[in-house]
Amino acid sequence: MAVDTHTLTIPSSTSFLEEVREFVTSHATQAGFSEGAVEQMKMAVDEACTNVIEHSYEGKGGQPIDICVSSYPDKLVVVIRDKGLKFDRAAYKEPDLLQFAKSKKAGGFGVHIMRKLMDSVEYKNTGGFNECCMTKFRS
């Protein structure tokens, strides 16, 4: 059972990422996580929301993104929910740094970072919503 749950809804614009980071920082800190762990969760959620804005909503503004932070005795769970295009797991490939530099591409590291920073990252599609569920356990 969740001890404490907080939800923030933002429109799909990168100008709201700072607000998302403040929201996650505030609740992860209140939940008693270390500064380092809070930094990691803040960044993972930023990356997840950026992916929703750029890929799920394809840069279209004004679409809703819900960020829900739940604190449990043993973990913090962040769920990012949107109504855009489904995340295509089959098309996702782990990025290779040298190949990226050569191809002069500017993106593609988001999911890689999320997986490195969180203990688990899962995607689901239920009832027309995409959900990205990220978990960080208390060490």
Binding site: R21, F100, K104, K105, A106, G107, F109, H112, I113
Partner: peptide
């Protein structure tokens, strides 16, 4: 603070 979007800029121009 830097996210992957910021890192991507360095990647895009270095070569």
């Amino acid at each position: 603070y830097i996210s992957s979007a910021g890192l991507g800029v360095f990647m895009a121009y270095i070569e």
